[in-house]
Design a protein around this nucleic acid. Structure first.
Length: 544
RNA sequence: CGCGGGGUAGAGCAAUGGUAGCUUGUCGGGCUCAUAACCCGAAGGUUGUAGGUUCGAGUCCUACCCCCGCAACCA
């Protein structure tokens, strides 16, 4: 395939930390990025979508030690598990990076050396509160009543030799960038970062000697490189930057089924280098600072371009609190996908979080949304339309006579593509998907306004055929635009309306034939209606 | 006086300074193509509190109350 004329689009999730079970909090960023990646592909972009896992650090070492296994033995099954989760949720990532990948570790060492030789990393002494039994340095704010939050014992002042990164050197430059551009959105987050910089940046301790589960400093092996440089740099090492031959990496996935719309053209390792700078780093708000201050500082020091944009989204809260295993409020995405389909979970996640804000999860909300939007609106619209086409015309309808209602309706159908694109440009997946669903809702209104059953009785078959054609057009266009968001349902719809599944938006704007022949088989039921009360009970019993 | 976000019908959310809307739930009506679905209508609000600016404030300003996050080397 000729890729020279294609515009590139590089999008990333954070790399996730495998310290416990994965929950729907982890799914949101990944699904949202997936929707944007798929959307851009259908717009004709050459997309590289990267996700992965951050596997070093003291917490993983500690968890592994407690289980009596090595860190890599601890981490491997969790990584397999998250890949399984992404497979269940149909995540079309092009690359999956692990910080334990050999090429990444080498690249991180090269980066560290480069920063050191440049003079932006220097050796000094880290001073802090230290809990000897836990072998952990703690900050003032981590302390609980002045004691260790884990073991509740007394902490002491302690010192440790460490390498420091000159974060302070880049503060002004980053502050300027944050205030003058839309580098970080929403704007409120940028303001927060600006204030943080104004409060004064300290240089950052970027190595540790208190544990060894990490990448070693190449010229001083008692130090391991800490999370900042190790994890953040995944965004460039995955592309091959700072690899052995500047281009050595191995994160690319095998080509997958074309139907999933995965990128099948990205298989020359050298070509990935040109994907930098990233078009979008997406993440939840708690790690904004690392991406909006520390990461740009590292890039500036490396003399690489900054990512074009960082989008920091809110959290999915559970009963108003942050989702966490210890509170026992973790919702298992495997169970939800299996019971209600991956599309149902994707739909909920994508439509639930309003731009930049936190949101809540409750099973009742989830089930209600599935019932009202997917079952009642989309599912029922498809079924009732198809069954009219089959009943009244044995499956064959064509464009014909129009009324005022029809004109209005067709205008709405034609406007949809542009409207959705606008929302995606703003990273607002929730508004994008709700825009599509507003056409679905309008379609149900259109049926009532035109009353096809009455047209049939009155023998106005030309108009009736046209109305049903318009409805199929609306279903076809909305399904096309829905493809990046729901990965299974649109295919089923295209199959039901006997149309070849579109792979890009341009070609999908008009039905060249001006007619449909959907056959006479029984109309498909896309989503079964849920008995919410019963489902809530079942989910509760599964949680035990 | 550390920094930032939020407080809007029962619930969940939306509103470039210009008629406070949407979804869900409740109540009433309609329709019969459809999965107890779909369509229409109604009820439901002192927009946290008190002031101020303005012809006009959910929106801007001031003070206060409540909730949440950050406060750097946990990720």
């Amino acid at each position: 395939m000729n890729t020279k004329n294609k515009k590139k689009y590089y999008i990333t999730t954070p790399i996730y930390y495998p310290s416990g079970a994965w929950h729907i909090g982890h799914c949101y960023t990944t699904v949202a990025c997936d929707a944007i990646a798929r959307f851009k592909r259908m717009q004709g972009y050459e997309v590289f979508y990267l996700t992965g896992t951050d596997e070093h650090g003291q917490k993983i070492l500690k968890n592994a030690t407690e289980k009596g296994i090595t860190p890599i033995e601890f981490v491997n099954p969790l990584v397999e598990n998250i890949k399984e989760l992404w497979s269940v949720l149909d995540i079309s990532y092009d690359g999956f990076i692990r910080t334990t990948d050999e090429f990444h570790k080498k690249a991180v060492q090269n980066i560290f050396t480069r920063l050191y030789e440049k003079g932006d990393i220097y050796k000094s002494v880290y001073k802090g509160k230290y809990c000897a039994p836990c072998e952990t340095f703690l900050t003032e704010t981590q302390l609980k009543d002045g004691n260790c939050p884990d073991c509740n014992r007394e902490v002491n002042d302690a010192e440790e030799e460490a390498y420091f990164f000159r974060l302070s050197k880049y503060g002004e430059q980053i502050k300027k960038h944050l205030s003058e551009t839309d580098f970080l959105v929403p704007k409120a987050r940028a303001n927060e970062m600006i204030k943080f910089i104004e409060a004064g940046l300290e240089d950052l301790a970027v190595t540790r000697t208190s544990f060894d589960w990490g990448v070693k400093v190449p010229f001083d092996e008692k130090h391991v490189i800490y999370v900042w440089i190790d994890a953040l740099s995944n965004y460039i090492t995955a592309l091959g930057h700072f690899g052995k031959e500047n281009g050595e990496c191995s994160v690319m996935c095998e080509p997958r089924d074309k139907k999933t719309n995965n990128n099948t053209t990205l298989h020359s390792p050298l070509s990935t280098l040109q994907f930098w700078p990233a078009d979008l780093h997406m993440m939840a708000k708690e790690i904004t600072r690392f991406h909006a201050i520390i990461w740009p500082a590292i890039l500036l020091s490396l003399e690489l371009s900054l990512p074009k944009q960082i989008y920091s989204h809110g959290w999915i809260l559970f009963d108003g609190g942050k989702m966490s295993k210890s509170v026992g409020n973790v919702v298992d995405p495997f169970i939800l996908s299996e019971r209600y389909s991956a599309d149902a979970l994707r739909y909920f996640l994508l439509s639930e979080l309003s731009y930049g804000q936190d949101s809540n999860y409750s099973s009742e909300q989830f089930l209600t949304k599935v019932n009202s939007d997917l079952v009642n609106d989309l599912g029922n619209l498809t079924k009732r339309t198809l069954s009219m086409v089959k009943q009244y015309f044995k499956g064959k309808v064509k464009i014909g006579k129009e009324t005022e209602h029809c004109k209005d309706f067709i205008e709405k159908v034609n406007a949809l593509n542009g409207q959705v694109d606008e929302k995606i440009k703003d990273n607002d997946v929730a508004k994008a998907i709700s825009t599509i669903f507003s056409l679905i809702s309008h379609s149900n209104k259109y049926i009532d306004l035109t009353a096809p059953w009455a047209l049939n009785k009155e023998g106005k078959f030309d108009l009736l055929s046209s109305v049903l054609f318009n409805l199929l057009e609306a279903i076809r266009v909305s399904s096309t635009l829905l493809k990046p968001f729901l990965t299974k349902t649109p295919s089923r719809i295209f199959e039901a309306i006997k149309i070849k599944e579109p792979t890009d938006f341009k070609k999908a704007l008009h039905n060249p034939k001006g007619s449909y022949n959907v056959g006479t088989n029984e109309a498909v039921m896309l989503f079964p209606r849920l008995d919410i009360k019963k489902e809530l009970e079942e989910l509760a019993s599964l949680a035990e």
